[in-house]
C-alpha cells in the first residue's frame, strides 16, 4: 500500500506517495536522489546512513519513510549554505577527518546533532555521540580532532 507523506527535507517541503515498507534511506537516495546519505551495513549497525530527524541523529536504514510524515529531515546535502561548507565539513576537510569518505556524511550529521545540543563538547561527549558511527579508515583520532576543531570554530 502507498500513502501520502508531507515532510521537510533540508528546509524544502516535499509531498510524496511512498510504499509502507519503504525505508527512509531508500526514499532519500532513490526518490529524492540525495545520495550523500550512504548505505553501509543496511541494518542499523554502522551509522553511515545517519540523518537528522527533527534535529536528532537517527539511522535512516531502520526508519520507515511513512513514519516521517510531518517531520523535518536534514541530510549532508543541506549542510553547506550558499556554496559555503558548514563548520564541520570544513573542519573534516582541514583536519583530515575524511579518508575514503564513506562514513563521513553519517559522522558529520551525528556530530552536527551533538554540536547543536552541546556546542563545547569534551572528548568523552564526542566519542559518545559518535558511538553509533563506524569508520574503517581513520582510527577515529582525526575525526574527533575535526569535531573539536569545528566546535572551537563555532563558539
Amino acid at each position: 500500500m502507498k500513502r501520502l507523506i508531507r515532510l521537510e527535507i533540508n528546509g524544502r517541503k516535499h509531498e510524496d506517495a511512498v510504499a509502507d515498507n519503504l525505508l527512509l534511506v531508500d526514499y532519500l537516495r532513490e526518490a529524492k536522489k540525495l545520495t550523500g546519505t550512504k548505505k553501509g551495513c543496511d541494518g542499523g549497525e554502522c551509522g553511515a546512513c545517519t540523518v537528522l530527524i527533527d534535529g536528532v541523529a537517527r539511522p535512516s536504514c531502520i526508519t520507515l519513510a511513512a513514519t516521517c510524515d510531518g517531520h523535518k529531515i536534514e541530510t549532508i546535502e543541506g549542510q553547506a549554505k550558499n556554496g559555503r561548507l558548514s563548520a564541520l565539513q570544513r573542519s573534516f576537510h582541514e583536519n583530515l577527518g575524511t579518508q575514503c569518505g564513506f562514513c563521513t556524511p553519517g559522522m558529520i550529521m551525528a556530530a552536527e546533532a551533538l554540536l547543536r545540543q552541546n556546542p563545547e563538547p569534551n572528548e568523552d561527549a564526542i566519542r559518545s555521540a559518535l558511538g553509533g558511527n563506524l569508520c574503517r579508515c581513520t582510527g577515529y583520532v582525526k575525526i574527533i580532532k575535526s569535531v573539536r576543531a569545528a566546535a572551537g570554530a563555532k563558539t
Binding site: T50, R58, P59, I62, A110, A113, G132
Partner: peptide, 9 residues
C-alpha cells in the same frame, strides 16, 4: 543500549 541514534528511536 546500542548507539545514540538507536536510543533516539
Amino acid at each position: 543500549v546500542a548507539g545514540p541514534g538507536h536510543r533516539a528511536a
